[in-house]
Design a protein around this nucleic acid. Structure first.
Lengths: 209, 209, 209, 209
DNA sequence: GATGAATGAGTGTTCATTCAT
DNA sequence: AATGAATGAACACTCATTCAT
């Protein structure tokens, strides 16, 4: 699968990503994408093969440009508890910056009606899980983290709650008095992130009840 | 808003709920619903007015039959920490039992392109939030819960992580070696629920870092 | 074909007549008629057999209740020229009072796609023609009307121009500064009628060019 | 508003014009048009946007190809009374040659339920009216026409009677013994035209009664 | 390599009518 | 005698894709 897209293709990818996230895959027509991206309708089939292949290309393009990998975020010599803080911050930031694609993939993984291949996404998740597991293990060996921690459920907690929070933007903007888009984004970067960090750390360090 | 549906209408509602959850609203055609529900295509418009009204009817029907209200789940005389356990168990159970509708509503609230009214859903959420807040306050007054707890973020954590877990069933079945539908369901009822309970309680009782 | 309609049937006939005239036969649905007439949808088929038969019933009902026949309008002992004035006045009045049905029949006679029977209407026209012919002949014998008058074309001139005038109500209201429905109706009863009378009499009495 | 239609589009316009005139707008389905014009159903929406836009295109196409304008028909140096003869002849010819479109527009102007724009048609009528008014005025100044002539009612008389005559083809073919389509057409071009000319001139020149 | 024209299949909805009660 | 429920057929329109150029 080639990954080098020309300018027109990238324009299409960006427009399509936005529309797919906003209106769903089935709710978006190629006509609409073509119109907004200011290209001929036939281009989408011509460049990407089909509407479904277009979605796969969006995912590939996104993952390819996701910037810093988790591995590079962490310094070797900081305490495990700080590493956890960093990881959560990184996770939330990354998911939030790519929320369009996360929303799309989430829906499409659920609607398995289309045979779209999201292996690259799943692989990324599994890889991240391994890293977190190794850090938790490190903390456990140092005696700062409790045992019996179900690390695999961190992801649902972090990403799941963030997606849910984003999807119910109206409700939470109302509850927290967030008046603008940037208010909302700042809330995620600060209060929300802090809350999740606090929660995970409590789980890792708290005496069992 | 009438809520009394006859048998055929209920059949349609159930089929549509399943299909909408599986394939999305736009990805499901009324023809398909009619075919599977074994009714004439015209019935859907005839009974519900339109495809969109059908979705609203599904939501209403679901909420109307959601059984026990949270208020009735709780005994007065148990400790706040036990109440929290009960609430989480109830929440997860309820969301899981109605996961179809949660999935649909989640997607449709996001894609606000349709003017479908989900106020009843939002009202339910706000109501539940108030209850949890009062219990946390009770615990704080008794000195068993810490202060500075962002209760409004419990919902995203509980429901968000559950929805995410469900949506990535393939991944987590793989990770946890769950071979059947009931394995997966049992995992949610036991390990998953326990994990969330443990997490929330840790958050409520742990010393700040 | 029976002609005795009960109250509900008459209500349906009146509503349908108005709607057919306003929106055309095909542009009007039986649902709409039933709704406005405040009767069950099935009633139309039940009472009249079909939508087409309903139209035939409207025509019959209308003709049956068209009030004074032309024959009775005329006094024996007035001059032919006055008879012509009376006839034209009667014609315009009658067509205008029954403009709905004239509009409908006009359209439906043209659209011969439906096998609707308008013989009763045609018979009325032929009968009226004979009467006018006899009066013109009377005038010709008295030497007050010229010969070579194509009496059969009087009807197109009188009714045709009136229907056209009615159909272009917006245009002519604008041209003549008629601000209300009753302004328009009065214009027909006075200026329009006078104009037609003047025209026909000119034709009947003028030296050939 | 573009007016250049390709061959297939013109084929569709012609078929649609005929069908709309024969069976009305609502009585004609795009399927039928497509079938007879031997094109794919989707072509109608593709070419014209919608069924209603198709009708607007028909009107535009017709008006655009209406050949000689009234202004060019008249020689400067003939007597007003001859000009009137020419105008009537032109009017009847033009309306008769375009009777389909006149019939359609007539019906649709009446059924104002659709927001179709017939301004171009109305503008044409108003323009023609001005021309006739100027000629009548000319005749009045020369003393050959009487005063107090309601020129605005000429149109209803000429066009209205012609449309009525056409719409009741069966009746008048019977009355005048016209056995073929061309008999009927010839009758319009000769006797009918002459009758209208005679009538209008009588009105213009006759002493008031 | 790129695109305007075209299309078969499918969309949600409305239609006049029928039928069991 | 009257009607609520139901339906097959048709409606105008949009879809993603193809193809000749």
């Amino acid at each position: 699968m080639k990954m080098d897209f020309n300018d027109k293709q990238i324009e299409i990818l960006q427009v399509a990503e936005k529309l797919f996230a906003e209106k769903g895959f089935d709710g978006t027509s190629v006509r609409e994408i073509a119109k907004i991206a200011n290209v001929n309708i036939a281009m989408i089939s011509y460049y990407f093969g089909s509407k479904e292949k277009l979605l796969e290309s969006i995912v590939l393009h996104r993952i390819g440009s996701m910037g810093l990998k988790l591995e590079n975020v962490l310094q070797e010599d900081i305490a495990p508890i700080q590493k956890i803080d960093e990881i959560i911050k990184y996770y939330i930031l990354q998911v939030n910056e790519n929320k369009h694609i996360h929303q799309i993939v989430q829906n499409e993984i659920t609607n398995n009606k289309r045979g779209i291949n999201f292996d690259s996404f799943t692989a990324l998740k599994k890889n991240n899980l391994k890293l977190v597991e190794s850090i938790v293990k490190e903390g456990q060996e140092q005696g700062v983290f409790k045992n019996n921690i179900n690390v695999a459920l961190f992801s649902p907690m972090i990403i799941g709650s963030l997606i849910y929070f984003n999807m119910n933007k109206t409700l939470y903007s109302d509850l927290f008095g967030l008046k603008s888009e940037s208010d909302f984004d700042n809330y995620i970067k600060n209060e929300f992130t802090h809350h999740i960090q606090k929660t995970i750390k409590a789980l890792l360090t708290n005496e069992d009840n």
